[in-house]
Design a protein around this nucleic acid. Structure first.
Length: 112
DNA sequence: GCAATGACGCTCT
DNA sequence: CAGAGCGCCATTG
């Protein structure tokens, strides 16, 4: 049916949330990777924007999403960054002395 | 409808 | 390896 017309404001968000939800524990994905899997390759900012608007109450492992540098992006509140790191470490993700994650080892492969 | 903002990525230095 | 600049599109005011 023509339900496609009434696409909610956060229609694109659902696409991103679906991809982030697919990230397995102990694995991390970059915004660019999420964007590509969500069909928004080249627009990693929308991924961050979507997660920023991510309403609590939704089981989305947002903490498994980091930037291409392997570091945790800083938001308005720095404490969140510490929480994200704690969640990742709890899943087995290792951080180096510089607080960076080894993407070569923890990067999630959507293919399998 | 226009202007500004934003959890980024890539390239160059 | 680290830092800075530019580009991208969607959402918000």
């Amino acid at each position: 049916m023509s339900g496609s017309a009434a696409r909610p404001r956060a229609a694109s968000y659902e696409r991103i949330y679906a991809v982030v939800k697919r990230i397995p524990p102990g694995r991390v994905a970059t915004y660019g990777q999420i964007a590509a899997l969500a069909g928004r390759a080249g627009q990693p900012r929308q991924v961050g924007y979507a997660l920023h608007a991510l309403p609590e109450g939704r089981p989305i492992p947002w903490h498994r999403v980091i930037n291409a540098k392997g570091t945790i992006s800083q938001r308005g509140e720095r404490w969140v960054e510490k929480v994200q790191r704690a969640l990742l470490e709890r899943e087995g993700v290792a951080f180096d002395a510089k607080g960076r994650i080894d993407l070569r080892r923890h990067r999630w492969r959507a293919s399998g």
